[in-house]
Design a protein around this nucleic acid. Sequence first.
RNA 1: UGUCCUAUGGUGUAAUGGUAACACUGCAGAUUUUGAUUCUGCCUUUCUAGGUUCGAAUCCUAGUAGGACAACCA
Length: 554
Amino acid sequence: MADEKSLNFLEEIVEADLKEGKHTRIATRFPPEPNGYLHLGHAKSICLNFGLALKYGGSTNLRFDDTNPVTEETEYVESIKDDVRWLGFNWANELYASDYFPQLYEFAILLIKKGLAYVDDSTSEEIASQKGTPTRPGVANTFRSRTIEENLALFMSMKDGKYKDGEKVLRAKIDMAHVNMLMRDPVIYRIKHAHHHRTRDAWCIYPMYDFAHGQSDSIEKITHSICTLEFVPHRELYDWCIENLAIYPSRQYEFARLNMTYTMMSKRKLLQLVTENHVTGWDDPRMPTLSGVRRRGYTPESIREFCDKIGIAKRENLIDIGLLEFCVREHLNKISLRRMAVLDPIKVVITNYPEGKTELLPSENNPEDETAGSRELPFGREVFIEADDFMEVPAKKYFRLAPGQMVRLKSAYIIKCEAVIKNDEGKVTELHCAYVPESKSGSDTSGIQVKGVIHWVSATHALEIEVRLYDRLFVTEDMNRIEDDFKNHLNPESLKVLSKVYAEPSLKNSKESEHFQFMRTGYFYKDKESTSTKLIFNRTVTLKDMWAKEAKRG
RNA sequence: UGUCCUAUGGUGUAAUGGUAACACUGCAGAUUUUGAUUCUGCCUUUCUAGGUUCGAAUCCUAGUAGGACAACCA
């Protein structure tokens, strides 16, 4: 009976807060900085934040943390909105930290008036060196003792553009000897004469993260502000701001970010892959970005299931990318339409099949879904089969085609290999087979039992398509552990293009909403670069292949 | 030679002082007109040492290991 799923530590906190009456409703937020595309790590955060609000009857804001104009762009804003929607979540309000610039400025003035902030003329190097180290306290400089009036005048001049970038900063006046480095008079405003994607040139001073994030949460009355572990030391400063500004007490909680094997989840490095053309763009199907996995053929359902399965905790983790693949296979198995495509062809001539004859053979679209119906496959005297499905000298336990051996062509007939045709170099170019007329699928009276069933495509009806096979982007399992340039770890075989693949003609009219399983080879999804004359399919993920494992074993 | 966070099978995540479990992976088998799917079974787990307790993965202390912190990034 105890079938209810156990709670993660954040759900426990929320339930306790609700139960104790600390809150009557909860409010969360997803706060991306619009300086890159969203990736799977963000998906974990999105599912958490939106999921919590959904589960406990609250709301979630989408808030862009746009306090650094030099790295942020509208293109990123749009992509982020697309990705969140695609994942299946609706935000209560679309907000921007930059909306709060006037309010944040007032907060800074208030701090100065309380004697809790001062203008510092030091260079960033000087500030850094005066800060001390984690084991040695920092030291105060002379600017720290400026009067309130002087600080007020100076800060207003900063806002009015009287100084150049870097000439002055506003710092919170806390404790230069604090054990937490972040409390040693952190910079809270800096001068940047830069064009902001939303406020344009209205401001030349911009608040730092620590002076914007908590206050933004507070303004929005966020009850549970959830972020990743690296912000743990910031919590003290987060609380300090709220307390000294005497504003709504949002609370920050931290969870461990997602790390995945053979994957790099750093926006900065992903950007580098894009700008240096190691991939074709943010939505390259090899990228761990949401736009990348979407283009590759992942479904939002499978990503959400993945996020649910990995759980939420506070310890560092490295998730096997195999779990992601399991989740997408699980979903795609249920919804994908079965099709046949021969990636590496070998021609088969069915010698006893009448020349010029064509039959239309029905084949189910999805054995997992009776309502998916069936389509008809043209069958003729010449078909292509996969080169892998023939072995001149069969390995043990190999039950596909071999000289003198029989296999079934899926949804068609049983054939027997009678002759192997080779070229001058001894390479097999063609197989001559005989079919068993009474073995037709659905009306088999032959009584023959064959173990092997292989896919095929009629040579005269084949549709030529391009297929792109993807493999992991990196060859190293734990990309957080490397010490050299991460680009040294790129997988040179992460993309293999097969420009001439034979596919059944029904693929011609595939829709964007359709995911396919090319039988026995994997799941595929039509790429956006397809044209009416050239269809391109991305391999989302392979099928599990026990035989490949068996064959490797020898 | 600091402060903070963390420690459960190979990988994740549960067990909230009372029989260590679930998923993935791996291995074995059954079914199968996809060597897929499905089904069955198996392997493997509480960092160490003390303490509290009738009883500790859980509480306490110390140690060990890993991570975070010295951006005018977020």
